[in-house]
Design a protein around this nucleic acid. Structure first.
Lengths: 235, 235
DNA sequence: CGTGCAATTGACGCCGGTCAAATGAGGTGG
DNA sequence: CCACCTCATTTGACCGGCGTCAATTGCACG
């Protein structure tokens, strides 16, 4: 089922089988997109939403002086731009990090869902707000945490999110992004990101190489990063 | 009308008079809160939402090492914690910046609104997502902008938002926050914030003193800050 | 085998943080 | 009405984390 991972990560409010089926039926069609291709361009009028079913996607904003801030990293099961339904456009862009598979939901179909089921409305709404909570935690990271802790914190977050869809365990996970992506997500330079990764590796906290994160002692890493997952609303 | 400023700042989707009235009737009661008092505490179960009708409020998170990151500044007409309706708790705290007046909406009343009116649902949902868009723009600010530009950008944002509710014009606005608040919002230290304010003043871009922002040339300020208001969805 | 991009490392510089102290303004109690 | 306290603002001196610049290495791919 296309929406399987999404529903797996959103346990509340509880849905009836009819509601689950209705959500799944709202898919208009599916698409594949190649790595590094732009999926949604900033400020373009939108009429559908994107659910990520396979691969990784990132949301980002380019600045005048050629810098890029990554605003979010999305994993399978994430409703990447559900917020385009009430907003009708996005103020940032979305691109495929890896080769991906996506499912498209016409805004009109979502509106019908919200008309029929307040329960489903609440769940979809909630989903967009958990994304916002993650945005805020990143604000805290970039605002007050040191470079090494920012990276460590992000890794803890990704691990927790990936674990829920069966793509991570306590010892690590595959992370198909570059150090440049990681730098743009944490507000650091690639050079300094590299140095901090080396330090984290030397300290035995984290080993990120060849697109894979290896964690030797998750508790110690979480402790170092001051990671408290309550902002993820994992429930 | 309690919801007057809120409706003034959310023009779409268009509401019928009945919908406006229904929203207004969802207010359970009003309260005053003194400056610096906490209104919502992190992770406490919530059963109602807070609409700010008078004064300023901020959302923030404290870190273990005693630092504070301000996540949002709210002005009259803002639905400060509407996101608590789908989330049932907040992962951050909310406090009164000044003496404030607030109106409280029980979650149950909001649920009834969403059951009755998809239109109203979309508007409320949209409101929470505009807050999220502002969070993301702050992420860009802290992630890639220099100290002076961060401050200038925030001032442009606040001016634009305040103008819409008649509390600012092109020449400036009252801003009842301290330099410490400003520092915590921009991810800077109070000392450096003070230095940057002096520089902005010297450069003739911005004069923030005695709780008032004076702008001599808005276009020049916006240009310096690379301020593009599209993320505010002002319409 | 050349091309291009990611990863890595060293040298150096600067933006913004830290520390410390002075000034000023508002509030409160004697 | 003044003494005193508290907190915001301001400034100077110094420091360090992270950025900048530049070069090298490694790897994938055509």
């Amino acid at each position: 089922m296309t929406t399987e991972l999404f529903l797996m990560t959103h346990q509340r409010p509880r849905l009836t089988d009819a509601e689950r089926k209705a959500l799944n039926n709202a898919v208009a069609h599916k698409r594949r997109v190649a790595a590094r291709q732009v999926i949604v361009r900033e400020n373009m009028p939108l009429t559908q939403c994107t659910l990520l079913t396979k691969g990784f996607v990132h949301r980002y904003k380019d600045t005048e002086d050629g810098r890029r801030q990554i605003l979010a990293l999305h994993i399978p099961g994430d409703f990447v731009d559900l917020h385009s339904y009430p907003l009708k456009r996005l103020e940032h862009s979305v691109a495929a990090t890896t080769d991906v598979e996506i499912a498209l939901f016409p805004h009109q179909a979502i509106r019908e869902l919200t008309t029929v089921s307040p329960n489903l409305t609440e769940l979809l709404w909630r989903s967009t707000l958990i994304d916002a909570a993650i945005n805020r935690e990143w604000l805290v990271s970039i605002g007050v945490r040191t470079a090494a802790k920012r990276i460590a914190h992000l890794m803890c977050e990704l691990r927790a999110r990936l674990e829920r869809i069966g793509m991570a365990d306590r010892n690590g996970f595959d992370l198909p992004i570059t150090q440049i992506d990681l730098a743009d997500a944490t507000g650091l330079t690639p050079v300094h990101t590299n140095r901090m990764l080396r330090q984290l590796r030397t300290d035995g906290l984290l080993d990120f190489r060849d697109r894979r994160v290896i964690i030797h002692d998750l508790d110690r890493l979480a402790d170092f990063a001051e990671f408290d997952p309550s902002y993820l609303f994992l429930d």
